[in-house]
Design a protein around this nucleic acid. Structure first.
Lengths: 142, 142
DNA sequence: CCCGTAATTAACCTTTTCATTAAATATCTG
DNA sequence: CAGATATTTAATGAAAAGGTTAATTACGGG
């Protein structure tokens, strides 16, 4: 049942094709720490607006506006149940953004390979990285 | 140490550690189509400011400002040779952005798996997949 | 029905962004 | 040096972003 990489690629292309979200909106939406934190929270699951707003010192309307931005970028959808509105992460546009970045992957890898040999050659004198392991996973930026 | 993953991972962490760029600046910089186009051009290689500006209708100072934004985000560096300034793509911050997005990968893959089964069931006949993965009451265990 | 809660909208303010044109700086060249 | 070229800085302005408080809409429950 696992979906292979090709399958994913297909799906991504499919979605990009049908996506109404512009990269402008998606990247701009990601350009605010509060909004990234909201997405991080939503990655844990559907959350109500009030709960989403609780951790912040800013007012509820401010959070509401951030949610509108995220919604406009297609990153968040809302579901109303009674007077409560539940927000969910909608990851497809993130995938579009990731795709854009991935387009340059071969370029950077060339760069990184070059840097790698540089580091190999200068191993004696180059500064050592203190904690090289889990950084990528701790990106949970608030 | 734990450089066990890949050489690249090591390098990326190294760079992240020494990077002065915030995700805010990087994602915001990417939130403008002109700037993304500039980066795309720079991915082909070092380019002078004037050449970079040529394809656009906007004035040279406008492009210059975009370059300043990209430079502030750490995405572009400049090299002066005589009166000409050559710009280069600096991909490390893009990597940081990609890492941020990748943090949610497991979440989306669950989504995409759901969509994949949808697509399997509906073949190619349906040209409107947009909300096929309506996540209303989806579980979260991540 | 009234009241409290959930959330948005309205009105407003300040700061930032994105663009412009004109002037300045720096450099190459005849 | 004079003049052309490459690029930035300055001054300016409109629009968007991000925040506030107050008012409003919409429900739910005694």
């Amino acid at each position: 049942m696992a979906v292979d990489k090709t399958r994913h690629r297909y799906i991504v292309n499919h979605m990009v094709k049908y996506s109404i979200n512009s990269l402008d909106a998606v990247f701009s939406a990601l350009g605010d720490g509060t909004r990234r934190a909201i997405l991080a929270r939503l990655a844990e699951g559907e959350t109500r607006v009030t709960d989403l707003a609780a951790p912040y010192e800013m007012s509820l309307p401010a959070v509401s506006k951030h949610l509108r931005v995220l919604e406009a970028a297609g990153l968040v959808t809302k579901r109303k149940q009674g007077r409560v509105i539940y927000c969910s992460l909608q990851p497809q546009p993130l995938m579009g953004a990731a795709d854009w970045i991935a387009f340059y992957r071969s370029f950077w890898e060339r760069k990184f390979d070059a840097l790698a040999s540089y580091l190999d050659k200068t191993a004696d004198t180059s500064p050592k990285p203190a904690n090289a392991d889990d950084q990528g996973k701790e990106q949970n930026d608030g």
